[in-house]
Amino acid sequence: MTLSGRDAYRDELTRLAADDGSIVCLEADLGGKGHPFQAAHPERFFNLGIAEGAMVDMAAGLAAGGYKPFASTFAPFAALRAAESLKLTLGYLSAGVTVMAPYAGVSGAWFGTTHHCLEDLAILRSVPGVTIAAPYGEAEMRAVVRAAVRSGTPHYIRTGRNAAYDSIDWPGEQPPLVNWEFRAGPEAVCLVSVGEEGTRLAMEARRAAPGTAHAHLLRLDHAHLSAAAAELARHHTRVRRRRGAPGSGRGRRGARAADASLRGHVGERGPELALPGRRPRGGHGLTRPRPARGARGRGQGVLRGAGGLRGGRRRLSRRPGRREPPVPDHARHAPRTTHDTHHVRTPCALTTRLQEYAPCISS
């Protein structure tokens, strides 16, 4: 029977630990009563409870002592709650610690947003020297665990919850840099997939559209992705982007127009953030907005990248030419607070009216 990713990890690590006494398993209250590693090697199994940062710090100490620690916890708690410990352990110390992160993405959706993790790839890819893997299926997971044991270098492995898949076959012992599930000509559309759900969807899409190429990537850190991109470029000469839903009428011309529009907002000095109702202009970050037609009046504050607040009470008048109501003497020199019914000055220099919400704020 095919095992899920996290069950395959536990089984493979337990099997490898029988021949390697330096392998240590750490869990953050995820082991349960039937953890195979705990049953086979209780003296090398540690359940640290919901103390993810302490678990990673302990793994760093074990690695410094010559052990090969594998620490497992939910992806949001590994990448977010223990982010500083991960940065210091994997990046600064380059300790040979492997972090196993199930429940990545939205695989634990029914637990709520506290257990979702869409940020772990961005966080871990910013830490230098970490090998990041997102296996698809039992065979890939076992291969990644074996490679982490042999290398003794920092690893981050993300997987789902209980979904079980059969990995895409590959020649040789180790998965290749780019695992081609199906090859096609250089002008054909090529789907590139990573992880469990992305690969499953890509395989379904390829079966629905025969002739489409499909390349699966296992490792997602900068070094492996750069090499994979070079290999993909050697096989496929064109990259086609599809924007909009099928049948929406936006074909190749729409994609080119969207690309041109995107390039127009990204210059040598970096991308510009265009807000609704505001026309983007050159320069860094946020620029002076132009109010949308018919939008004068409430909420017309000015947001600038570094310039703070511009305009004042007259700029925020209800209608052009109408004067503001007089300010009482006792409030003329009083500092602005959240109870002010005219406007609030926040640290980001965004000015807005709170007349409608004043009763709620006061309560």
Rank of each mutant, 00 (worst) to 15 (best):
Y165A: 09
G185D: 09
H222A: 14
E187A: 15
A39M: 12
G244N: 10
R269H: 05
E173T: 08
P320H: 10
E197F: 05
F37S: 04
R318Q: 00
R81L: 15
A202N: 02
V327Q: 05
A213E: 08
A245L: 13
G152A: 10
I361E: 00
A213C: 03
A164K: 06
Y103A: 02
G321H: 09
L48F: 09
N179Y: 00
G152P: 04
A257R: 07
P291A: 12
T338K: 00
A17D: 00
E27P: 02
G152D: 03
Y165S: 02
P186I: 10
R293I: 12
I123Q: 01
L275Y: 14
A83G: 03
P291F: 10
H235L: 08
C190P: 03
A59R: 04
A60T: 13
R336A: 11
G283K: 04
L191D: 14
L13M: 11
R125Q: 15
S151C: 07
A83S: 12
T341D: 02
N179I: 00
L350C: 12
P326I: 00
A205D: 11
H235N: 11
L16E: 00
A164N: 04
R319Y: 04
A215D: 11
E138H: 04
P69I: 09
A60V: 10
N47T: 07
P359T: 13
E196N: 03
A306N: 15
H339V: 09
E27Y: 08
R322C: 00
T338P: 01
A109V: 09
S72H: 08
L118K: 02
A101T: 03
G49H: 02
S22E: 05
V144D: 03
D340T: 13
H155G: 00
Y103S: 00
R304G: 14
V127L: 13
T337D: 07
G31F: 06
E272Y: 11
A59D: 07
P347F: 00
L191S: 07
T2G: 02
T114Q: 05
G283Q: 07
G305S: 08
G307T: 12
M141V: 12
A82H: 06
A274M: 10
G282I: 01
R353N: 05
A139R: 14
H224V: 04
H236L: 03
A122V: 14
Q38W: 10
Y92I: 09
R256S: 12
W170T: 01
L93K: 14
D329T: 01
A122N: 06
R240S: 06
T114W: 13
F70Q: 03
R314L: 03
A54R: 06
P335G: 04
R353F: 06
R142W: 01
P291H: 07
A205E: 15
P76V: 15
R298T: 00
F46V: 12
W180G: 01
V192L: 07
H235P: 02
